[in-house]
């Protein structure tokens, strides 16, 4: 049972945050002017905070239910996890700070932080998933890592196509071809979830001894947490019609 709790939050993170990471990666492609960039950010603005907490809970579930695995996973990939965290911090700060001061230089700098941080996150996740799933180290790691980074980007485009309008929506639909926007998004989401699940299988996690407490709590909490997030999704279900707070 423990493994389903872990999988639920980890896969939830990959699918949900994967979309806003992908949009961040392709910010310069989607938004060519400052106005377009702000509108592109508005596509993910209401969601990114609620998306990244899935990873915070994943780490919490690891600490509580799989303490041995948490220790092994994190310290054995020390430099990779450190860079991943730095990318996460830089990207979040870019999102929060870009609108705080008017001025092109300020906004361009923090937009740069969003793009660099999103690429950093996607590359680190690509590398981390590859290390765990394929057990490879060294230069060869670059290939699966880049493939997964491209998957994050595609997933971001699919999400942006669902959220944006007009020319931005057309740019986002670059890779969808004739397929519908929702079907493209479902496909990229399912691919990311599959990669995550296959990686999880390779981990062979052994649960600790707190399951008797934490599993029932998780089963009660999960519907509530999903309902809270569903309220966010419902509130922002319409396409973006202009800039948001960020």
């Amino acid at each position: 049972m423990e493994i389903f709790v872990l999988a639920f939050f980890a896969l939830g993170y990959l699918v949900l945050a994967g979309a806003d990471i992908g949009v961040g990666m392709l910010l310069p492609y989607l938004g060519r002017t400052p106005g377009e960039r702000r509108e592109t950010i508005a596509a993910i603005a209401p969601f990114f905070l609620g998306n990244e907490v899935w990873l915070v809970v994943t780490a919490g579930v690891l600490a509580g239910l799989f303490p041995a695995l948490e220790a092994e996973l994190l310290h054995e990939n020390y430099p990779l996890v450190v860079v991943l965290l730095l990318a996460w911090v830089v990207r979040d700060m870019g999102l929060w700070l870009r609108g705080r001061v008017p001025g092109r230089v300020w906004q361009a700098a923090w937009d740069g932080a969003i793009v660099a941080g999103s690429w950093g996150l996607a590359l680190c996740w690509g590398a981390l998933l590859s290390v765990v799933a394929l057990g490879i180290q060294g230069p060869l790691l670059v290939l699966p890592a880049l493939a997964l980074t491209a998957l994050f980007g595609t997933h971001g485009l699919a999400f942006a196509a669902l959220r944006l309008r007009g020319v931005l929506r057309e740019r986002a639909a670059l890779l969808s071809g004739g397929a519908g926007e929702l079907r493209t998004f479902a496909l990229t989401a399912a691919t990311l979830a599959t990669v995550g699940a296959l990686t999880g299988v390779r981990l062979e996690p052994v649960a600790g001894t707190s399951g008797a407490l934490l599993v029932p709590v998780s089963l009660v909490m999960i519907p509530l947490l999903v309902a809270a997030q569903a309220w966010v999704w419902w509130t922002f279900r319409h396409r973006v019609t202009g800039p948001s707070y960020l």
């Binding site: 990244e52 919490g60 509580g64 239910l65 707190s210 509530l224 947490l225």
Partner: peptide
């Protein structure tokens, strides 16, 4: 670790969302 897990699940997830 249980307390850390409960913090993320019961508190922080809802707070941030």
């Amino acid at each position: 670790g249980s307390a850390l897990a409960l913090e993320t699940m019961i508190a922080f997830f809802v707070e941030a969302t």
